[in-house]
């Protein structure tokens, strides 16, 4: 059997969440030796897991060493290349934003337009450029120019960006923010229109390998089946309710009449063998967002004793993300 390498982040904000996300997908990662950088996924025996820093995940995939990887959309935007494609952009963990943040004391600065004028003041009053600390020079530069700010110097820094203004290395920062607590602790505030990237975790792949290698495509398909099913499962609930009626087909028609309770295909009815005749249990899968509306509709047509349970996986006819990927690769 050929082995397909999947690069996962070894440390950082999305490292642990990536492992629990995969476990939720039924893809538990086994790491036999905590000091080694490899692992395996028993449910997908052809996959070799390689642990890398979150930026190196993108590099390894961009160069094709690993045809697949999990990293952040922010990393893709900053370090991506033509060969790196985002296979699944919406893994629903590791949410954060790349933002422009300025000292809280700058009470006159509430927007990027204010910042643009302050940058001009720096030039005219202090005779120097506004200094911006960031690990995202490419996106920072683009965003500042697009905001009409042209007089700035990028101070490249590794880690603890938010401390740069305190130390005196920089005037403002561009950094990832999850809750904003770190910014507040460092007396910084994010500018409301200074959001450069809305990021979260994503599955990435090496374009050429995907096109050329059917085995890699097959592994990608199996991975996406698990991921789509788990993500789809999180969005759904299974609802059961008991309804009394003379004709099971009539009950089914009534339930299916409302889009809220139609389920994925239609309701399942099973007779209840109990005290009275004519009782049936209706089972449907409904979106979690409209659960209460569905229950209330069932009540309105005579449903009682409704119960809702989480759904672990919903397998659609085919993984929609895989179908979309094939379309993109051929296009």
């Amino acid at each position: 059997m050929r082995h397909v390498m999947l690069a996962l982040p070894s440390k950082g904000a999305i490292a642990e969440p990536a492992l629990s996300f995969l476990a939720d997908c039924g893809l538990r990662v086994e790491k036999p030796n905590p000091r080694q950088y490899t692992g395996s996924i028993p449910a997908l025996p052809e996959v070799d897991v390689l642990f890398q820093r979150v930026i190196d995940v993108a590099y390894k995939v961009a160069e094709g060493t690993a045809p697949l990887g999990i990293t952040g959309l922010d990393v893709v935007a900053e370090y991506g290349s033509d060969e790196l494609i985002v296979v699944h952009p919406d893994l629903r963990f590791g949410q954060c934003r790349l933002v422009v943040a300025v000292p809280e004391a700058w009470i006159d600065v509430e927007s990027m337009l204010d910042l643009a004028e302050v940058a001009l003041d720096f030039r005219e009053v202090h005779g120097r450029n506004l200094r911006v600390a960031t690990t995202y020079p490419r996106n920072t530069r683009q965003f500042l120019h697009a905001s009409g700010i042209h007089h700035f110097t990028i101070v490249q820094a590794e880690g603890a960006i938010e401390a740069a203004p305190t130390i005196g290395h920089a005037d403002i920062i561009v950094d990832l923010v999850q809750t904003g607590t770190t910014l507040r602790e460092n007396h910084l505030k994010a500018l409301p229109d200074g959001v450069i990237i809305e990021s979260q975790a994503c599955l990435i792949g090496h374009r050429r390998t995907m096109l050329a290698d059917p085995e890699v495509r097959e592994t990608t398909r199996r991975l996406l089946e698990h991921m789509d099913a788990a993500l789809e499962g999180k969005r759904h609930m299974q609802v059961t309710a008991n309804i009394r009626g003379a004709d099971p087909a009539a009950i089914a028609r009534l339930v299916a009449a409302n889009p809220l309770t139609r389920g994925l295909q239609g309701p399942t009815l099973a007779p209840i063998y109990g005290a009275e005749d004519g009782w049936y249990t209706v089972t449907i899968i409904v979106p979690s967002t409209t659960l209460l509306n569905a229950i209330e509709y069932l009540r309105s047509i005579g449903g009682v004793q409704a119960a809702a349970t989480p759904v672990r996986y919903v397998f659609l006819e085919r993984s929609p993300t895989y179908v979309a990927l094939l379309k993109r690769l051929s296009g």
């Binding site: 000292p103 009470i107 305190t166 005037d171």
Partner: peptide, 12 residues
């Protein structure tokens, strides 16, 4: 505030 990011009170 300790942190003025290279601007003085007068600038602000």
């Amino acid at each position: 505030s300790q942190l003025m990011g290279g601007r003085t009170r007068e600038d602000i």
